[in-house]
Amino acid sequence: MLVFAIRRLLQAIPILLGVSLVVFGLVHIVPGNPIDMLMPPEASPEVIAQMKAAFGFDKPLYVQYFLWLFRAMQGDFGLSVFNATPVMGQLMVALSNTFILAILGASLGFALGITFGMTAAMFHGKWPDKLFSALATCGVSLPHYWCAIVLVLAFSVLNDFLPAQGMGDDSLPLYQRLEHLVLPVITLSLIPMGVIGRLVRATVLEILGQDFVGALGAKGLPRWPVIRHVCKNAAPPVLAIMGLQFGYLLGGSILVETVFNWPGSGNLLNLAIYRRDIPVLQATILVLASFFVMLNLMVDIAQAAIDPRIRR
């Protein structure tokens, strides 16, 4: 088990390096220098040269890459070229805001998805199955930015139940700040709900069709312990997809954050694109992608811990 975990960890290193290379390379496939794009056209060549030297854009590319990577590993992503504040600080704030949304959205979505999926499988072919399957199909086909707009429409515009913008001030009482969470969290939970619901239904149905479940029933085991056995066997694939979905929520929340004006990492990325703030852009993508890699890693190890067949 330990060997498996360590080997899996070692496998993640080349992937992380590849990710960093892609993130760094992306910025440099566009012709031109980040500073050239940022400076006003009338700026003197000396000022531009000064700026380039200050941000390290004058060195050869590979030197820039290793310098950037070396600093990045120490958590130093340099200064934002837009407002000259440390990128790391901005990123930490934004990431923690995104985390709140992603964790709550994922928890709600997973809980609903598992409930729906199990119910549908238990009532295979009957009306709850059909209803939940239809709901789940809707869930996976939902453009969540549109869904956000519809929710805003329903709860903020037509009825003034809930706030639709931002995450509220620190000065507001707790329940009001929680109210700001409701709509974004519901929006984010819909896709994981659909994906997990469909998966749970399919997995449970497959397991229910296997011989050993029949054997458990024939042994005279009552319904609930049988369900426990089923859950244990359904867990690994479901767990894997849960990990992926959580990663997608972190990386994909940019659209939802835009609708709700939520000051998270997606919003930061969006701003960085508009301001052409390369260091912030690179840092945000690198951190989100690395996080996704680590998440997959943890899921793999957790899966192996549950299901010994996965360990090699």
């Binding site: 992937i15 990710v19 910025v27 994909g252 960085a272 694109i273 989100l288």
Partner: peptide, 16 residues
């Protein structure tokens, strides 16, 4: 290793 939306946005954001 990139979430799909993030990769699409990153490429588009940088290419314009």
């Amino acid at each position: 290793a990139f979430p799909s939306i993030l990769l699409a946005i990153a490429i588009c954001g940088i290419l314009g």
